[in-house]
Write a protein that binds this DNA or RNA. Sequence first.
DNA 1: CTTTTGTTTAACAATTTTGTTAAACTCAAA
DNA 2: TTTGAGTTTAACAAAATTGTTAAACAAAAG
Lengths: 195, 195
Amino acid sequence: MSTRDTGTEQLIKDTAKHLFFAEGKLHATTQEIADAAGVNRTLVNYYFRSRDILFDQVFTEAQEGFSSTLDEVFRSSMPFKEKIRNLIHVFIDETTKYPYRQLFIITEMNRHVVFTAKKSRAKEVKIFLAEIQAEMDQGNVRQMEPKQFIMNLFALMAYPLITAPLHQALFGMNDDEYAKLMEERKELIFETIFR
Amino acid sequence: MSTRDTGTEQLIKDTAKHLFFAEGKLHATTQEIADAAGVNRTLVNYYFRSRDILFDQVFTEAQEGFSSTLDEVFRSSMPFKEKIRNLIHVFIDETTKYPYRQLFIITEMNRHVVFTAKKSRAKEVKIFLAEIQAEMDQGNVRQMEPKQFIMNLFALMAYPLITAPLHQALFGMNDDEYAKLMEERKELIFETIFR
DNA sequence: CTTTTGTTTAACAATTTTGTTAAACTCAAA
DNA sequence: TTTGAGTTTAACAAAATTGTTAAACAAAAG
């Protein structure tokens, strides 16, 4: 027995995630991943057998990471407003670390048209939609299709982070200035959502 | 004299754009582009010399297309609210056709870190920001950093289109149902922006 | 009709990227 | 210390992608 487990397998995977999700290098080759991880490229094949398998694993874990961020909110039993406030903080902090994760998911979905339908998360969404509807009926949120409410919320959170390079160029801002803008957004989004 | 101009050069470029911007095939090879255009791959090299040059051209035209969509709004002299209403329709219709154009721009920006700073569009933006500030001072829009207003606006418009596959999976909707949701959004965004 | 110029193609070459093999290495356990 | 399983490496092979060349083709100009 033993499996020395030097952490190399995890290192490679984490490095790949960093390149894909944090740096937005969606085209990264196995060589680039190995270099960034400071290991020999052969290890990528040793641990993952093929590039595709590594991609699949990263893709799956990206979906799971994204989903579990949402579940944390969907399943919580806080009052609605607190739940949303919590989501905004968690989601923005997470997306600041991994701004390109959603892009990676979408890009990969468009490559192999196959396994688009993973664990559907349909039940949790349905419950959350009903909860939103209830809040609207109580007059706490402006009346609209609850799906639109969800899209508004995630749009306001995610888009400025996904498109950060574009906006920084447009506004002529550096990283720190932009980060400050994002921090201020947390409260702004809350107010926008609840009018 | 002559240049027979069979339109093949334009066909290749348009096909590339369609693959990149409409289908989200951000990794498409020259062979895939040629196949989709129904021409021999050698033509890609004949007309564009190299893959990179084709990419650069497409990238530049993507930026220009995106910018000119905005300029149409920035430079217009309509009343503010009408200007925004117009933008929402133009931008959503455009982004519905080319949902992945912004993703392509960002992805390419992250590849060759070089030419990030193109024509800066700084002047137009500054004018638009001032205009927003004026509207806020008049009480027509809730007070906030004008940059946040712009980001809110574009977030609400673009994000649900960029992430359409994700949301369709999440909500269990087909293309038509989702398109209907997007159409309804136009008015909703207008109301959300102007509280 | 012939020439000219631009277009298209097939065959080939070079490069890049990926996958495989066998041998060297490392550390824990016997 | 020797064994042995897992780890790492270099060298090699295969595949995929890109780039080049020369020749065939098509249409307008002379």
